[in-house]
Design a protein around this nucleic acid. Structure first.
Lengths: 200, 200
DNA sequence: AAATTAATTGAACGTACATTCAATTTAAAA
DNA sequence: TTTTAAATTGAATGTACGTTCAATTAATTT
């Protein structure tokens, strides 16, 4: 009896607009009032669905981190093959991944993790999941003797260190050519880590 | 005639307190009023020395980035030797470097670089300076035949990718043992890049 | 049509903020 | 001791913020 709940729909709508505005103007310049204005609703409605701004922020972080996981869209049923591994590496070292989420916001909340334990845990969980995903993929390929890798976990970890390290620098690089070249160089390093000369 | 100017002294004092407060409470929670309260001065005095909060923020960024450069404290007169190179690598992969500046703030402003060109340039300049410094060091050691490295620039770049990449992950790691082990592992990788087995 | 429940609005609150400007205090030089 | 210039204060401004609460509107069921 009574009205149907729009809670989840509305919450997602709000988060998406929050993301959009924060992406453009920065998280610290995005207020509840601004979000409400863009959505043409009353600010108190946002508070109604998220009791505090803190909770709204956590929801946005979850939203962003979920998108961050989208690298692993395609997963084979019976274990990963070379094609999956290849696709993943290409994804990791491509701008496509970068366009899945906003880097500025990603780093903004990453920085907040240094002071807020909850956020730190969220990030740690996602980063570990990414590493585990690649580790599993490498292991499966190794067992099928498609590649030869001494330690899948170590290899996956190293690849992510390369990815994170290279993007850290490249985010400041405006020269597109230099950007592409450096990304390509470290991609080839990743393929090397995976046992040699199978870069397609 | 008239009073002696305290401009530079006062400015540095303000920045240092700004740094201290922001380190503890986060940049976004640090207001001019708060800084003034801690210093027991009037907020308008801060505005007197830095016309806007933006300018004050830029000054803090410069302050932090200058500290970031302190890895290269010791420089030999007639070119770097193995000891210098060794010391630098040890520094890069040690907590000492991390304690030179606050990581939370470093990443906070790094995130702001995505939206503010001026900040981006500041960061780019510092990061390039670091890379160039290590490149030169490697080159000098190579010319003295102390190490054997095919391309000094490529090697330095790779080492920094490792450093940045490993800290990106380790900043979320609370297990001290795991932290130390991972750091050590990538340090050995750095030594390997520098031509083999001379890790002291 | 009446009852029920959730969505949504609108007004209001107190707070903290960056910044302004004029007035005052302090120190150094003439 | 007077002049001069900078340091410093103090009061005030307007704005935007997160949040509250009661009132109203809209949809769904009985």
């Amino acid at each position: 009896m009574g009205r149907k709940s729009l809670k989840e729909t509305r919450q997602l709508e709000i988060i998406k607009i929050f993301y959009k505005v924060a992406k453009k103007e920065g998280y610290e310049n995005t207020s509840i009032a601004k979000i409400a204005k863009v959505m043409d609703i009353n600010p108190s409605l946002i508070i109604h669905y998220f009791q505090t701004k803190e909770e709204l922020t956590y929801a946005l972080i979850d939203y962003i981190l979920d998108r961050y996981l989208l690298i692993y869209t395609i997963k084979s049923k019976d274990g990963a093959g070379l094609a999956d591994l290849h696709k993943t590496i290409e994804m990791l070292f491509s701008k496509k991944w970068n366009s899945l989420f906003d880097d500025g916001l990603f780093y903004t909340f990453y920085a907040m993790a240094f002071r807020e334990k909850k956020i730190k845990e969220k990030y740690k969980t996602i980063l570990d999941a990414l590493r585990l995903g690649l580790t599993t993929m490498i292991e499966e390929c190794h067992q099928k003797k498609l590649i030869k890798v001494a330690d899948a976990k170590v290899a996956a970890d190293l690849i992510f260190v390369l990815v994170d390290g290279v993007y850290f620098y490249l985010s400041l690089e405006s020269d597109k050519k230099a950007y592409a070249e450096k990304l390509d160089y470290y991609k080839s390093k990743a393929y090397f880590i995976l046992g040699g000369d199978w870069k397609p």
